[in-house]
Nucleic acid binder design. Structure first.
Lengths: 362, 362
DNA sequence: AATTGGTTCTGAAACGTTACGGTCAGGCAA
DNA sequence: TTGCCTGACCGTAACGTTTCAGAACCAATT
């Protein structure tokens, strides 16, 4: 028994005594050949076990892969657990689905700096979501001659971008707390750079942060509190590498241990804030009477908890990125879409207690 | 100014006066040429703006796409919201990442029966997750000459498979309720087939269900309750097309409206069960004193709610599917991996109240 | 001087498809 | 008859890469 080589367009054509073009047309342009011949072609295909035109060969010829690459860099458990990332993913997937494009998740080994996967991905474009500015994968993506959209990233010369105004949004939240009377605040933020630092983040580290979003949110706080005379360099900022409520709790604990007289803990994400709430509860601190806690993102769980936060349209962000990439948006290039955010005042913020109240109760 | 055609391996080779092979080697087999020449190649590449070997052409030649296709059929918002699907996705993504393979989400428009996307996907294999037996996309996948793994699907001749024993697991849960004394039960299940039916599901519809998992779970219940003399055809089963807590609540409501003397509502998923719990609360029914509610899956939210349920290793399922596809599992083909489940007895199940208790209180 | 072995590089042949510009026969109107 | 159109099909040339068997060269060994 001989090893049957898999059938190809050419072998089918040979078998039928027609040209390759005709067989190709049978699949791609039914109007270009007689129904009778087409029927014969398809039947012979079935008989020979020809599975239809090879997608890769077609892609090579047509210069279209039919898929969008998504670069996440982050640990995947992060992407699939973090509600904000998930919302983005869903929005992007919806946009792709609507355009009949696949979504190709680029495998990134967070340990090794192996950029090969980026070069190996047969895609028509890339979406890069929230990777550090100095990520070599980002550089690899930019080196490829396909359109790219970055999201929750700083501007890159000549590259389309989707995002929110993190700095202004956080500034708005800060202003709210300032108007309530808060001056002694502590901050919990997500990882600032690729190297792990679970603990206080120096001013230098904050400003040199490689994660644009975190840097911008901290800057927004510095803007607002600086404007009312709070020396930002005195404001304790605790950083956590892994994004989880448990880490939010431990960071809040670290903050409160170091400075027990804080009146507010501002977190750069809702997940962290939910952890901070848990920690406050554990310590018997009433929220908001004894401690104000705020978040960022506006995820469902936060809403349920009544968290004061900034709501951002995560799904819309994903969808916008997809539309931008797939050309559904007409505009001069490079294009930029900055989506609106909204301050959600929940039940976790209130004026700080006066010193008197502190000692003698409300 | 002439339109510069993008540089290729060949044009680079010509520019340098070397063979294409050498340029190829510069990228893929650095040890096959002198460091000096390699340096020159890479530098010239930079100068000419050559972005490195084209992934599609490489795939054509090597017959490797470096990606795994994932067929979900379902509305994507489902996949990204349902915790069980998400766990599967994460496990699969982890397996792919570990093997340096991309994960290609095949775009499926649930409205149209457009199978083209399956044929257009340049992938080395497919994972098919929980699609109806008669889904044309599944047929399209099977027609392609690449390895395939189905998950939460019925056996397909000659195709690898990953899953759990839904029938036995549900039977185990049912037995538990039976031992507690429950005989008057109602069931809430997910969509049984591709056509929408929000309401009671006839016996015929149950048995003809195109979603294997749902069919198996109902069969498990029928097994166990039939064995103790409960006439399954009398057991009300309410079906909901969209998988959400809201639908779980409305289905439970429909059930309780029709048969107020039910002592237990068995749901085929935790999401539905959480909805049923909410509905019970809304009606002032105490759980478990007045009503037993059970779920299936063992998602985090269920655990938090103390739900009695079946825990299944969703992440492991995804990982197993990936490993099977990527050849990390040695075994005769077709292979099958049936993962273990665990009955989790929570606080939502208890013996039914006797008729006396019903009238006079506990 | 001949042999061996290694490194470095090359030429040609795939990989399987689609785009493009045809040809060719037949029908139809002037 | 001529000219023109249309439907049906075809031949060739890419698309950009990797693979494989070897050639050319040089140094070291016999």
């Amino acid at each position: 028994m001989h090893v049957r080589r898999p059938a190809t367009l050419a072998s089918l054509a040979a078998e039928l005594g027609v040209s390759r073009t005709t067989v190709s047309n049978a699949y791609n342009r039914p109007d270009q050949l007689s129904p009778e011949l087409r029927r014969r072609v398809l039947e012979t295909a079935r008989r020979l076990g020809y599975p239809g035109p090879d997608p890769v060969a077609r892609s090579l010829r047509t210069r279209k892969a039919g898929a969008v690459g998504l670069l996440l860099t982050e640990n995947l458990s992060y992407a699939f657990r973090d509600p904000a990332a998930l919302g983005f993913l869903e929005g992007l997937a919806l946009a792709c689905e609507g355009a009949g494009q696949g979504l190709h998740l680029v495998p990134v080994n967070p340990e090794r700096e192996d950029v090969a996967a980026v070069h190996r991905a047969g895609v028509d474009g890339f979406v890069v979501y929230s990777v550090p500015d100095d990520d070599p994968h980002l550089a690899a993506v930019l080196s490829r001659p396909v359109p790219t959209v970055v999201c929750d990233q700083p501007r890159v010369e000549g590259v389309d971008r989707v995002g929110i105004d993190d700095r202004a949004a956080m500034g708005q939240l800060a202003e709210r707390l300032i108007n309530l009377g808060h001056r002694k605040i502590g901050v919990v933020c997500m990882r600032l750079s690729r190297d792990r630092n679970d603990g206080f983040a120096s001013l230098e580290r904050q400003q040199g942060a490689h994660f644009h979003v975190q840097r911008a949110r901290l800057a927004g706080l510095a803007d607002a509190f600086g404007a009312v005379g709070v020396d930002w360099s005195e404001v304790p900022v605790v950083e956590r590498f892994d994004h989880s409520t448990a880490n939010g709790a431990s960071a809040a604990a670290q903050l409160l241990d170091a400075e027990p007289d804080l009146t507010a803990v501002i977190c750069t994400s809702d997940i962290l804030a939910l952890g901070a709430l848990a920690e406050a509860k554990r310590r018997g601190l009433r929220v908001p009477q004894d401690l104000t806690v705020t978040g960022f993102d506006g995820i469902t769980e936060a809403e349920r908890a009544g968290l004061t936060t900034i709501r951002q349209p995560v799904l819309e962000k994903g969808r916008a990125a997809g539309k931008l990439l797939l050309g559904a948006v007409e505009h001069a290039r490079p294009r930029q879409i900055i989506l609106a955010t909204e301050l959600v005042v929940g039940a976790t913020s209130a004026p700080p207690r006066t010193a008197e109240e502190r000692w003698f109760g409300p």
